[in-house]
Amino acid sequence: MGLESALGKGYLTTRMDTLVNWARSNAAWPMPMGLACCAIEMMAFAGPRYDVSRFGSEVMRFSPRQADVMIVAGWCTYKMSHAIRRIWDQMPDPKWCIAMGACASTGGMHRCYGVVQGADNFLPVDAYISGCPPRPDAVIHALMKIQDKIKAEHSVLLDT
């Protein structure tokens, strides 16, 4: 491409990537999969003290079609895991997943017959948060980690 050679290899695609990633990382609308105790902290995370809207992520979309980041907050039981997976499948790409709290990450204290030992058994998880339940700051931290991850992605041209 002429433009490419004039501006240096991969200049255009890199610029495009930067723009796209900037938009994606700053408009990551969460899909609050509030299951248990962590859901309360997830509300606090959108509440007045922690205010996730600063990062442009306060638009909680309960319809999976419009969400970007799924926050699995709470233990996933076998019965619920089907619904979670289905909602994950309904989310359009690109999408990310945060496993919030010990239960969603590993099963945590609920080491028993009803609970899937970690949401990563059936979901591709991008960020894990420790804590039972984690403080809202930790959730914001995870969101920022996701933003970092988005910013490092090559979405326009994968191999340049």
Binding site: G74, K79, H110
Partner: peptide, 11 residues
């Protein structure tokens, strides 16, 4: 109901 059933009584 039961989508959060983990069996605390068993635990």
């Amino acid at each position: 109901i039961g989508y959060l059933h983990r069996g605390v009584e068993k635990i």
